[in-house]
């Protein structure tokens, strides 16, 4: 149970996201049902998971947590408040030398308690011209570790234009968050085969490139 301050902060953040980006969720498949999901999305902005979170039905939002880099969200009191208390992010240290134990363990624990995760399989923000960076293997390992948590591809469109790296003022542009069909790991599927399939499924949700290039 989160406190009133955290709820108010969450409402402010999602309200602000809606006011600036007019964000809409687009479910290509049926809207996600109950039970844990692993929403895996493209990553170009720190606000990415806020948009996914904003368009999720409120019932699901309460049990959905972003997976984020501890090196970013654990620096400074404000970020720590939002990261840990408001978004209840599952923080992982992206620096292997600082890790103690299996980095997937807290993710698996969250799924075990019935929570869903928002994951960015590119591992870091994509600041290149490419639409999508290569995937890290965490998505595959997690999906194999917890087969009852269904991976769902989520394409976030336009947020990188709203708030490019290094800019302070967001530009109000319409954003969409498109949810694809669930994509479980097939029996005996190799890591490379699954990650390639997941990447293709995610790219397939992007609008046609000529719309906004």
């Amino acid at each position: 149970m989160t406190g009133i301050v955290e709820r108010l902060a969450a409402a402010l953040v999602t309200g602000f996201a809606r006011a600036v980006t007019g964000v809409r969720g687009d479910w290509r498949d049926a809207p996600p049902g109950p039970g844990p999901h692993i929403y895996f999305a493209n990553h170009a902005s720190h606000g990415d998971f806020v948009l996914v979170w904003t368009v999720l039905p409120r019932v699901l939002r309460r049990t959905t947590r972003p997976v984020a880099g501890a090196d970013y969200w654990d620096t400074g009191a404000i970020r720590r408040f939002f990261g840990r208390r408001v978004f209840r992010a599952v923080l992982i240290d992206r620096r292997p030398e600082m890790r103690t134990g299996d980095p997937l363990e807290p993710l698996a624990a969250a799924i075990d308690s019935g929570q869903s995760l928002i994951l960015f399989p590119e591992g870091t923000r994509n600041l290149t011209e490419a639409k999508l960076l290569p995937f890290k293997s965490g998505l595959y390992h997690l999906a194999r570790l917890r087969p009852d948590a269904v991976p769902v591809p989520v394409w976030i469109e336009n947020l990188n234009r709203v708030m490019p790296k290094g800019e302070l003022v967001p530009i109000p542009l319409l954003c969409t968050v498109t949810f694809g069909a669930p994509l479980p790991v097939a029996a005996g599927e190799t890591k490379d085969a699954y990650l390639a399939r997941a990447r293709t499924a995610l790219l397939a949700l992007a609008p046609r490139p000529e719309a906004v290039s």
């Binding site: 007019g22 234009r161 490019p164 800019e167 003022v169 530009i171 109000p172 319409l174 906004v212 290039s213």
Partner: peptide, 24 residues
Amino acid sequence: AALREFVTLTPTRRGDHWALAIAF
């Protein structure tokens, strides 16, 4: 709302950021 729709469908670049912020 109209300008937001218009700019969304206009291929802007990062170099337009200040100009866009001033416009809005």
